[in-house]
Amino acid sequence: MSTTEVTEQPGATPRTPFDWRSLAPLATLIVLVIFFGLVTSNFFSLVTVEKVLNQGAVLAIVSVGLTFVLLCGEIDLSVGTVALWTACLCGVLFESKFAAGPGGKGAIGAGAVTLLILLPLVTSVAFGFLSGCLTVVSRLPSFIITLAMMNVALGLARYLTLSVTFALPPLLKSVGNDGSALGAGFRFPNSAIVAAVVMLAGHFILKHTRFGRYVYMTGGNREAARLAGVRTERIVIACLAICGLTAGIGGLVNSGRLEKVSLDQNADLLLNAVACVVLGGTSLFGGEGSMLRTLLGVVTFSVLHYGLNRISGINDLMRPFLLGVVLMVALVINGLLARRK
């Protein structure tokens, strides 16, 4: 890494928390909350908060990695299948005779559980690292490389599991389903705690480290960054590796929530996570965005998703249509407001 010190973030990271672009997703969120509060019963309750946190946790985790990748002007299409691969590997290892055995019925120690979680995560990082290296070496768009990696991860997951469903360590089930009771019937979901830790780490790296500033520089103007001494190739590789890691964590948490891992999971994860990041105002073209915006996007998307599920007076087949319309309106308003800046 170059020793060049960068004091200003190029691109358009917001100087104040209420620039136009930040206002759009916030306004969308407020409108949605008011709307769902009016049309559904008991929406303004702690249960809603708990469910939104629980249902948005996986998206939040995966979106952190995608934010890094988008900020440096790249994309990772393999997050869904890398998440799937990671969970599948964990499940297969868990049911191996060296661990809990068939059906996951046997008892295993904390050390073994740690290994069962860390080893798959190492492979998810390796997927991202490999995508990054191939992107840099081949000079092909990451879009193409990660498209291929998407199939590599899916194929490996299918080959590994033979389409069989596998059990997971109880720790992951607890992360996905349990929470800390905070009184008044409210539980703070464990998955949301994991998401918060990952988001805080992402925020800290982006805002308070040299690497974070280099990510913005690489995405804002790669040639300028390179001339300024930033080894942009390494930044791209690191961002894709981070994205692999968060995809892996997200995959484990999601499978834990569903209690088992099977090949039909995470099908919508990629597009939903990209929608969250962009909804928050992070640019698809790099250099502009932040973890706070991603958080806003995740919360907005989760509220929208949860609220639509709560509405009972509409034709069920129209829910995707409504989801699409609201997303479209929010993104267009976001884009229009950004142009005013």
Binding site: S41, R310, D316
Partner: peptide, 28 residues
């Protein structure tokens, strides 16, 4: 039948879980 009838979830577990939780939450 809550929610006015069947909730189509495309065989997807995540979608089923989200819809199911939302319906649980609104019942007292």
């Amino acid at each position: 039948v809550l929610g006015g009838g069947v909730r189509w979830c495309d065989w997807k577990k995540e979608k089923a879980r989200d819809s199911f939780e939302a319906m649980l939450a609104q019942e007292q």
